[in-house]
Amino acid sequence: MTITKLVSNDPEGAHITHLNSGTKPPTPSLIAWARKAKDRLVAYGLLFPAMSVFVVFFYLPAAFLLYISFFHWGILSSATKFVGLANFRTLIHQPLFLKSLETSGYYTLVMIPATVMLALGIALILKEAVTARRGGIWRAAVFLPHVTPVVATSIIWIWIFNPQFGLANFLLKAIHLPALGWLESVHWALPAVMIDTLWHSLGLYVIIFLAGLANVPRELVEVAQLDGAKRGRIFRRIIWPLLSPTTFFVVILATVNSWQAFSQIYTMTGGPHGGAGGPAFSTTTDALLVYQTAFIYDHFSLAAAMSLVLFAIILLLTFLQKRISNRVVFYR
């Protein structure tokens, strides 16, 4: 039996630096390359279905949006002519468009704090209950509205807000407040929609806050309690800062969703069955106006220009909020 022994000068391998010198036979690089290429093809192949959906149905339209905003474009014909910023100029001079921006802004500005406060409040109330035995039922009750289709549930809210027979006015009268016109009044149509939206969407945010609250380390709060801090102080100084990433997330989500709200507004005030756009256009939000401009009045390129503005606004809002968050949100 021969002894094959490799006694290198440093079995510790401490002095190896460059191995590519000297007389070392290389691996067949062509085959290796082909193999890598095949691996890459396989990966791309697996990614292709998902990516093609994203590109075709999302990125392409985004690019297309830029294109058709600058062209006067009858959607049926392929005749286009470059009109540059003409569409945007028309927009600026349209009072309804500006009003829609205002309406969307007002809607969003009210919804964000309302959502945050209510969702957080409910989460705090529910927090103990959901960890109890079979506590999921409480969470389910709050979350259930969120999974229901908005159209279906908006119908019952229309009925609830019915000025003569609806529950809302009944309750108001029961506590000696005047009945309101709700969806038929200029000032109360949008709030009615807000109430519907809050009912429908809070469930999601409550769940998000519940998760965020669960991530606040118990010990920090208990230490504060032992030190005798009052609950308000605990909340302000401990829970709220630690919750800020969650809160930020909720704010962004609420902003984007509020600005783009459509289905409930359409059902309650915007469709052919409801008042088109609300009494005196008080519920005509940006998104609703885009829809109407395109599909009811057939002004596609105008609608496209509006969409671009909407796109820009959302990106701007998100960007601004991210900027603010860097200073306000406390990340562990």
Binding site: P61, F300, S307, L310, I314, L315
Partner: peptide, 17 residues
């Protein structure tokens, strides 16, 4: 990136497509 695109803004071009 897809998650960041505002859905409402894309409806018109999606319809055209």
């Amino acid at each position: 990136g897809v998650m960041m695109l505002p859905t409402q803004a894309l409806l018109i071009p999606q319809y055209a497509e």
